[in-house]
Amino acid sequence: MQAGLKGPLRSSESGRPAHIEGVALDSPDLKIVFGHIGYPWHNEMIAFATKFPNIYIAPPHTNLSTILRSWFHL
């Protein structure tokens, strides 16, 4: 699944990880894999992956150092 910002001139609201919570609750046997960490909602994405054992985050192919700097305020 896609999480995070969408392309130009498109609303990114559907990319919020919180939108998948209902699916994770209703289908606990369904494995949900996000192909992105959900930036700028990466903290939300990590929280849901921690809360639900059926939500996974694939390794990011974006600039990981940018995300880490934002987490640790570097």
Rank of each mutant, 00 (worst) to 15 (best):
P17D: 01
S70T: 05
L9Y: 15
R10K: 15
V33Q: 00
H36Y: 08
S70K: 10
Q2A: 08
N63Y: 10
G35T: 08
W41A: 06
S12R: 10
F34W: 05
G38Y: 01
P60Y: 05
F52N: 01
L9A: 15
P60T: 15
G4T: 02
F72Y: 14
K31N: 09
I46L: 14
K6D: 13
A49R: 06
L5Q: 12
P8M: 13
N63M: 12
L5I: 15
E13C: 11
E21S: 09
I67K: 04
S65L: 12
D26T: 05
V23C: 05
P60E: 15
A49S: 13
S65F: 10
H73E: 11
A24G: 04
S14N: 11
L64V: 15
I20R: 01
M45Q: 04
T62K: 02
Q2M: 11
R16D: 12
F72P: 01
N43H: 09
P28K: 08
G22P: 09
H36I: 01
P17H: 01
Y56M: 11
T62M: 07
Q2N: 14
G15Q: 00
S27R: 15
A18G: 05
T66R: 09
E21A: 14
I20H: 00
I57S: 00
A58I: 03
F52E: 02
M1N: 05
S65R: 13
H61D: 08
P28D: 14
I67G: 02
T50S: 14
H42W: 06
S14H: 10
L64Y: 11
M1H: 06
M45E: 02
A49T: 06
G22M: 07
R10S: 14
N63I: 12
A18P: 01
I20C: 00
T50G: 13
A49K: 06
S27M: 14
P17M: 06
A47D: 15
I20Y: 05
M1L: 09
L74P: 08
N63K: 10
V33T: 05
I37C: 03
A47V: 05
R69P: 00
I67P: 01
F34V: 00
S65C: 07
K51V: 07
E44V: 04
W71V: 08
I57E: 02
S27I: 07
M1A: 08
S65Q: 13
H73V: 07
P53K: 09
P8S: 15
H61G: 14
K51L: 11
K51F: 09
P53S: 14
K6E: 15
L30K: 08
H61N: 12
F52Q: 03
N54D: 11
I37E: 03
I67W: 05
I57R: 04
A58Y: 07
A18T: 08
H73Q: 10
H36F: 12
F48G: 04
A18W: 06
S65M: 12
R16M: 09
T66G: 03
P59M: 03
I55S: 00
I37G: 03
F52A: 02
P8R: 15
F72K: 10
H73K: 12
S12K: 12
E44N: 02
P40S: 05
G4Y: 00
M45C: 08
H73A: 13
Q2R: 13
L5S: 14
E13V: 14
W41I: 01
L25T: 12
L64W: 10
N43Q: 07
L5N: 10
L5R: 13
E21D: 10
K31E: 06
P53L: 04
N43R: 11
S12N: 12
Y39H: 05
